[in-house]
């Protein structure tokens, strides 16, 4: 428990004492939001669906129809 508390305090103190890091964390936050909450959800859904066998069938069909 003491170890966990030390680890938490280490990160907590580190983040609190950041200067330029706050701007960077803001940029990281916005970037991750755009990438994961917008692009991933609305534009980058996996093209293959179902079980592994279903996916294999879809790829087989795609590769052999060309």
């Amino acid at each position: 428990m003491k170890i966990l508390s030390n680890i938490f305090n280490f990160y907590y103190d580190g983040f609190r004492s950041m200067t330029i890091g706050r701007t960077l964390w803001l940029i990281i936050g916005i970037k991750l939001f755009v990438i994961f909450a917008i692009l991933r959800v609305f534009f980058f859904q996996p093209a293959l669906h179902g079980s592994d066998e279903d996916k294999a069938c879809q790829v087989r069909e795609n590769l052999l129809k060309q």
């Binding site: 960077l24 964390w25 990438i35 692009l39 859904q45 996996p46 093209a47 996916k55 790829v59 590769l63």
Partner: peptide, 25 residues
């Protein structure tokens, strides 16, 4: 590091969506 981190993740998204035959293959 902070600005560049996770910019490579989008390449993996592209594999799954745009290049799915390749990704599976």
């Amino acid at each position: 590091f902070a600005i560049g981190v996770a910019t490579g993740i989008v390449l993996e998204f592209e594999f799954g969506t745009n290049w799915s035959n390749y990704s599976w293959f």
